[in-house]
Design a protein around this nucleic acid. Sequence first.
DNA 1: ATGTTATTGCAACTTTGTTGCAATAACAAA
DNA 2: TTTGTTATTGCAACAAAGTTGCAATAACAT
Lengths: 128, 128
Amino acid sequence: MGIVRKTKSLELVLNEFRCEKTAISAIELIKRLYSKLNKTTIYRILENLEDDGVLHSFLGQEGVRWYAMCHNCSKSKHNDLHPHFECVNCGKIDCLNLEVNIPNIPNRKVSSSQILIQGKCEECYDLK
Amino acid sequence: MGIVRKTKSLELVLNEFRCEKTAISAIELIKRLYSKLNKTTIYRILENLEDDGVLHSFLGQEGVRWYAMCHNCSKSKHNDLHPHFECVNCGKIDCLNLEVNIPNIPNRKVSSSQILIQGKCEECYDLK
DNA sequence: ATGTTATTGCAACTTTGTTGCAATAACAAA
DNA sequence: TTTGTTATTGCAACAAAGTTGCAATAACAT
């Protein structure tokens, strides 16, 4: 459906993404905004922001949904084919601004792909 | 923990994978074996078979877990880094026997990756 | 200032998966 | 074959993540 009205709830959710350059899981958002917003509201705002091309979502290793700011997306088209990187040490996930080449596959029509790369992020890599 | 005893339940689960070349979701297995096995038993057998390197698991688009036969895996090491292909038309998922090159990423240590490719499978592609 | 309707909060529900525990079944040893 | 040990199973209850229906509230166009 997309966002129609500018509400306080919407601002609270958007603010979390403004302060943060990495992705945020729905669960984490619910925890952060616990005292201010109901989880149903949060899920609905996330869905609307995704419809509008403001956020994109993907699944982390544990099967929970994460959200991150879009860069070149619009209401009509999501360009969120970049891979995501999940740190096995601190759990943080962020978007990787790089292209991974998906080869053609005989007799199949590829329409999209999701790539989750695991490893140690910058900070955790430096620690050891 | 891995499989220790050869039980009827184990045989029932393994049979499903013998008849099937594609992956099977835990949910689908529970439906198929509904009258014969408890879902708890099925989850436990799947876990044990994965520990043993007989099956590997991954998440499908909807966040549910799928299982497929391993080919070169053992108790000590899983080699399940191949991509999986999910048909957007019929919902089937199977393993792709191909390598996708994950580029090096500065300051990060990549340890593994999960790739889910979406599109139309052989059968659904031919239909149209 | 007012009327319309999008948004919110709440409670109840759904789906997928997990846990504890007593009963049962594999199977090694006698 | 019988017996004893313990892995496996089924059940019920739980848990986490997300969804739905509905009445109350808040945006905002007029």
